[in-house]
């Protein structure tokens, strides 16, 4: 299938977008803002169709609208971001506006379908380059803020006390989400961005409770989703976006069932100890081989060094 240039372009574009959006998605899921992210893509629909009406590039309108909406949501703060009704109304209204804009430009019906459901097989070389630039900005920006973002996500009060500006961080993050949304729209369209961004990340968080393995797995699953989706589309002639969403759903279901079963079987999370062990290979003498026991030799070693309170055993 790689003898066709459009397939090569499609694979390149999908790879870039899968990496960027799954990393962003990991934090989106962690922060419980997936619905806000979903809404951002719909605002993008109004932006893109409005841009067409105004005679400018739909991609520009898309990016502008999502970035402004992202910054606005971040500015309005935590409370707004969890107000599902308000976000839902913005989402619906954006779709409505987009519809109105399209109404004035009936000639753009195919473009509307591409916007709504994606058209990855129609991606051309310059778009791939644009996506590469956009993807680099997204990953670079996320890498820069990821440490305080994690802190602010898990411990906002403490982060604030240590000088982290929660509002500024939230705005920057949602702008990054907006950019990732704009990139994903090129592949799966506005209505389906959710699967590419959220499904791999949510599945990864079901499988591992460790941060870095989770991020890595999120990327791997997104790549599987995108590459397999394209391949299946090529051989079945069904829409790529269908396959990507179907695979996203399947991956999440498997992760969910898998974690349920494992949970029922063991009641513990022993698989994750290995990762924990890997993080700590630095102490050769005390570090075990990542053994899956309740208290590994490593922990006892640390406990002996660190714990002045030898006798009591604080059971909770």
């Amino acid at each position: 299938m790689f003898e066709y240039e459009f397939m090569v372009n499609a694979f390149e574009a999908a790879t870039i977008v899968a990496v960027a959006s799954s990393l962003v998605g990991y934090f989106l899921v962690l922060r419980g803002q997936t619905f806000a992210g979903h809404a951002l893509s719909h605002v993008g629909f109004a932006g893109a169709t409005g841009a067409v009406l105004a005679g400018i590039s739909p991609l520009f309108g898309l990016v502008l609208a999502t970035v402004l909406a992202g910054a606005g949501m971040g500015f309005l703060g935590e409370r707004f971001q969890h107000r599902d009704v308000a976000i839902g109304i913005v989402l619906a209204m954006s779709l409505g506006c987009g519809l109105l804009f399209l109404h004035f430009f009936t000639a753009y019906a195919t473009q509307a379908t591409a916007l709504l459901f994606g058209n990855v097989l129609g991606v051309e070389a310059p778009t791939v380059l644009a996506l590469l630039a956009l993807g680099s900005v997204i990953v670079g920006a996320l890498a820069t803020i990821s440490r305080p973002l994690l802190f602010a996500t898990l411990q906002p009060e403490l982060a604030e006390a240590k000088g982290v500006s929660l509002r500024r961080l939230s705005m920057i993050f949602l702008v990054i989400v907006a950019l990732a949304t704009a990139a994903s729209v090129q592949i799966v369209g506005i209505l389906l961005v959710f699967t590419l961004m959220v499904a791999p990340a949510a599945a990864a968080q079901r499988v591992t409770i460790r941060l870095w393995p989770g991020l890595l797995l999120s990327v791997v699953l997104a790549l599987v989703e995108a590459w397999l989706g394209l391949t299946l589309a090529f051989y079945t002639d069904w829409p790529t976006s269908f396959w990507i969403t179907a695979l996203g759903a399947a991956i999440y279901m498997v992760a969910l069932l898998g974690s349920r079963q494992k949970h029922a079987a063991s009641g513990m999370h022993e698989h994750d100890h290995h990762h924990h062990g890997e993080d700590h290979l630095m102490r050769g003498a005390v570090s075990g081989t990542g053994e899956v026991k309740r208290l590994s030799p490593r922990d006892e070693g640390i406990a002996a060094q660190a714990r002045p309170l030898s006798s009591s055993s604080h059971e909770l």
Partner: peptide, 16 residues
């Protein structure tokens, strides 16, 4: 996320 990662997020977590 694991308890370890939760505790660890506060270790110089304010740095970029």
């Amino acid at each position: 996320l694991s308890g370890w990662d939760f505790v660890a997020c506060a270790a110089n977590g304010q740095r970029f």
